[in-house]
């Protein structure tokens, strides 16, 4: 018997005029989970973030945090949410501590308890030594930490972050990830959006968003296991060469004795041909022999999250439609 998830999203949709930016998305996030919404730009993650942060009302569907929905108890819901926006919401002209104190006052806190809480959070975020400095003098990584401290002032149950690593250098990214894992480990549910595969890789669970729809949901390992087998990538010099090579490879595989396996796919993505197959490794010698000189490199690997994305959507992450030259492929 498991308790209902802390965050329950049910058929959430949002349109802007005629354009449906988010289309009936449903999922749940358990308490203490680190959950990543992964998708390309325009995939709907920012819209979903805006709905969950209560910045925008949904067109249809609803969501609950700790059982509270925006329609029933908006203020109660907001008390349970800490929100970190992609564009900084710190006042650059105020000092780090002033920012926390003003926001605390906005939340209805004040006096000694607020000062103590702000001090403790700055300590925890490792920015206490900059408390008296104006935010405009902080690096991007430090400012993001202050931003998180600010979002945690009222001890929310859920911390929502929109592309939190945007604009950070690799070192700051790494320490931010460690911090988020630590928060989740401490019981704060962390829900973030990202377009970075390696960032999503570290999440406990991932929701894959594409064109406004949730196309996959699960742990990174589960999602990759679903793709199955291995992935063979033949890199060529140009898109045209890749198109020709993909057709030739698909024909060659179709012509082999065994019938086209439903799990086998040949797709072209840009200047590369990708072959997903349970026995991709066994194809290497024959492909290398038959098509020598027609590709620049041949890579065999376990499926990545990018492969999961291609598998589920039929197009590449940066928007290129995959073309499938054979019946075994997927129509784009």
């Amino acid at each position: 018997m498991s308790a209902p998830p802390l965050v329950e999203v049910e058929g959430l949709s949002r349109s802007y005029g005629d354009r449906l930016a988010l289309d009936g998305v449903s999922f749940g996030v358990a308490e203490g989970e680190l959950f990543a919404l992964l998708g390309p730009n325009g995939g709907g993650k920012t819209t979903l973030f805006k709905l969950l942060s209560t910045l925008l009302p949904p067109s249809s569907g609803t969501f609950r945090v700790d059982g509270l929905s925006p329609a029933r108890d908006l203020r109660g819901l907001r008390r349970r949410l800490g929100v970190v926006f992609q564009s900084p919401s710190l006042d650059r002209k105020l000092t780090v501590l002033e920012n926390l104190l003003v926001h605390g006052a906005v939340l209805g806190l004040g006096g000694a308890p607020l000062r103590a809480r702000a001090g403790a959070l700055l300590e925890r975020m490792d920015v206490a030594d900059r408390a008296g400095d104006r935010v405009e003098t902080l690096s991007g990584g430090l400012a993001r930490r202050v931003e998180i401290a600010k979002a945690l002032l009222h001890a929310p149950r859920v911390l929502l972050l929109d592309e939190p690593s945007t604009g950070l250098d690799p070192l700051a990214r790494r320490s931010l990830r460690a911090l988020l894992r630590e928060l989740a480990g401490g019981g704060t549910t962390v829900l973030l959006t990202t377009h970075l595969f390696d960032e999503a890789e570290e999440a406990g669970r991932i929701g894959l968003l594409d064109r406004g729809r949730l196309v996959a949901l699960g742990t990174p390992a589960e999602l990759k296991r679903d793709v199955g087998g291995e992935v063979l990538v033949l890199a060529t010099e140009s898109d045209e060469e890749a198109v020709r090579l993909a057709a030739a490879v698909a024909a060659a595989l179709d012509a082999r004795a065994e019938a086209p396996a439903p799990s086998r796919r040949v797709v072209r993505l840009g200047a590369a041909v990708r072959i997903e197959s349970p026995e991709a490794a066994a194809l290497v010698p024959s492909l290398a022999a038959s098509f020598a000189g027609r590709f620049r490199s041949l890579t065999l690997g376990a499926p990545s999250l990018e492969d999961v994305f291609v598998d589920r959507t039929g197009h590449s992450f940066d928007g290129d439609a995959a073309s499938a030259p054979s019946a075994a492929g997927t129509a784009a």
């Binding site: 209560t54 910045l55 929100v83 926006f85 564009s87 919401s89 926001h103 906005v106 209805g108």
Partner: peptide
């Protein structure tokens, strides 16, 4: 649009006090 007020808008503070 992209600053301080975003966080105020999604806070439990009443719009009237804002």
């Amino acid at each position: 649009r992209e600053g301080f007020l975003q966080a105020v808008v999604v806070s439990p503070a009443s719009p009237l006090s804002v």
